[in-house]
């Protein structure tokens, strides 16, 4: 054993100097811990990326809702597969989400009561999505709606639009 190796062992007997002298053992310990720390953080980052899917096999968020003539004026039509209401008023069309803003249950249009009701926790909305009562924190959003070149309604569920925007046909 060399003298340097010996001197690093009894730390208490080794007076700490003002210059914060570090021993070879301290240095190697810190280098090792630092390397392990960086490797650990790297593994966390890599695992996080691994667990976030890049390709999703989920239904398309854009869909065609057919010819505008299918929907009479003053009507609310529930498209079950898309979980969207197509509402036609005299001014035109808008698309209202059927997914409750409270906890994601699918709401139902009640024509007799003239409102949209959620079966899970009792939120109620008007046909335009504004809240009447219940725990829902926000009104039902309106999705972007447009006409395709061949004259069909096109709804984009990723794009929310202002309540005042109506598609005139």
């Amino acid at each position: 054993m060399s003298d340097e190796g010996h001197s690093s062992v009894p730390e208490a007997s080794h007076p700490v100097q003002a210059g914060n002298e570090i021993t070879r053992r301290d240095f190697l310990n810190e280098i090792t811990l630092g390397a392990l720390g960086i490797a650990g953080l790297g593994s966390v980052a890599v695992t996080y990326q691994f667990l976030s899917p890049n390709v999703l096999f989920e239904p398309s968020t854009t869909f065609r809702a057919g010819n505008p003539d299918l929907y009479p004026v003053h009507s609310v039509t529930f498209l079950q597969d898309q979980q969207v209401y197509i509402v036609r008023v005299p001014e035109g069309f808008y698309a209202v989400s059927a997914v409750c803003t409270h906890l994601g249950c699918v709401t139902q249009w009640k024509p007799d009561a003239d409102m949209i009701a959620c079966p899970c926790h009792g939120s109620k909305f008007k046909a335009d999505g504004t809240k009447i009562e219940g725990p829902a924190p926000r009104p039902l959003p309106h999705f972007a709606i447009s006409l395709t070149a061949d004259g069909e309604l096109l709804v984009d569920k990723l794009q929310n639009i202002n309540f005042s925007q109506v598609l005139k046909v």
């Binding site: 996080y48 667990l51 976030s52 999703l56 989920e58 409270h102 906890l103 994601g104 249950c105 899970c120």
Partner: peptide, 26 residues
């Protein structure tokens, strides 16, 4: 559906955690 929507109500990280837990948006 309801449980993971409760998770997404968590501030800042809620939606990320929901995405990781479900492996998607649905």
């Amino acid at each position: 559906t309801v449980g993971t929507n409760i998770i997404s109500a968590m501030p800042v990280v809620g939606n990320k955690i929901r995405y990781l837990l479900l492996g998607g948006n649905i």
